[in-house]
């Protein structure tokens, strides 16, 4: 009797908490999208931002965000995957491994503004590059690597032991086993993790303030030479991303339509992150199905 009531109460509490979370998220989306979506027009997405007049867009910021994301992932994924393979397959349990693990976790929990200031010191001042895309990407790499390491390690550890044994027992070397058995099996997990990390990178502002900067030179999208000053592909140019743009127009914007631009940009940002998440889930399940086909 008594335990039955407790059970009901517990069930009720969990349902309520779940409902609160869903409601919060839905309200947030409703608020951001209802304010922002009306501003998001083709013109808004494809025109450059303006400094003083109303009617500026977010073309360059959107491009910068995507470009920094790509550069970050190009650096992060190989490093993170290798680190994850090391942690899952090579690291022997012991003090050193525990120390490495602690370091990785510390790295993951560093406040992003601190990483930004660190980036300012290293990638902006010491290298003498100034505010650059590559500097921003490296700063983002710092707190993205731990995520990739963890995701890869978990994915590789989740490969059934029998699969690994089967390969080793055939006289296949450890590296070949990793390459041909473990990595393909772990691939959906790694991919999902990478896309989820992308969502985080895409929305990051604090770490980029002092590394990629608050401005973008006038870009010529016809110029594909990555070494030209006005080429969008140049990684040694400053680049204001979407998230940074939202922050900067709100704090120091001189345009009369600050609210509209900020709302529109926020909506675009949220939709992009949402798309990343949906993509991650969808791709993960498609590949998983393909791998276990026939069963």
């Amino acid at each position: 009797m008594n335990s039955r009531i407790t059970d009901r109460i517990a069930t009720g509490v969990f349902y309520t908490i779940a409902a609160i979370m869903v409601a919060l998220l839905l309200y947030l989306f409703y608020f951001i999208l209802s304010n922002g979506l009306p501003q998001v027009t083709w013109d808004f997405l494809t025109s450059p931002s303006s400094s003083y007049q109303a009617g500026g867009g977010i073309r360059d910021q959107l491009f910068n965000s995507l470009y920094i994301l790509v550069i970050t992932m190009i650096i992060t994924v190989p490093l993170g995957v290798c680190g994850g393979i090391y942690m899952a397959e090579y690291a022997k349990p012991g003090k050193i491994t525990n120390f490495i693990r602690t370091c990785i976790e510390m790295l993951a929990s560093l406040p992003s503004i601190v990483v930004g200031l660190f980036g300012l010191l290293i990638f902006v001042n010491i290298t003498g590059w100034g505010y650059t895309i590559i500097g921003g990407a490296l700063a983002l790499t710092i707190f993205n690597i731990p995520v990739m390491v963890r995701v890869t390690e978990d994915a590789i550890r989740s490969v059934p032991k029998e699969q690994k044994e089967a390969s080793l027992a055939l006289g296949i070397t450890r590296w070949h086993t990793i390459k041909t058995v473990l990595l393909p099996y772990a691939f959906p997990g790694i991919l999902t993790g990478a896309i989820l990390a992308s969502g985080r990178v895409f929305g990051e502002a604090a770490a980029l303030l002092y590394t990629a900067g608050l401005s973008t030179p006038t870009l010529d999208y016809g110029n594909w030479n990555p070494f030209a000053e006005n080429s969008p592909l140049n990684i040694f140019r400053p680049a204001e991303t979407l998230a940074v743009h939202i922050w900067s127009v709100n704090t120091q914007g001189l345009i009369p339509d600050v609210r509209e631009v900020a709302n529109g940009a926020s909506a675009v940002l949220v939709i992009a992150v949402l798309l990343f998440n949906i993509l991650a889930r969808w791709l993960g399940s498609v590949i998983h199905k393909k791998l276990t086909a026939g069963k």
Binding site: L168, L170, G171, L291, A293
Partner: peptide, 30 residues
């Protein structure tokens, strides 16, 4: 040389553990 040894001393486990690949690829893997 573990690689050489295990090629010469094959092992079968409790439960069949084929790789999630085609029948053909499973056999030619080694």
């Amino acid at each position: 040389d573990l690689v050489d040894l295990r090629r010469k001393v094959g092992m079968i486990f409790q439960k069949g553990n084929p790789f999630p690949q085609s029948i053909y690829d499973n056999i030619v893997y080694g």
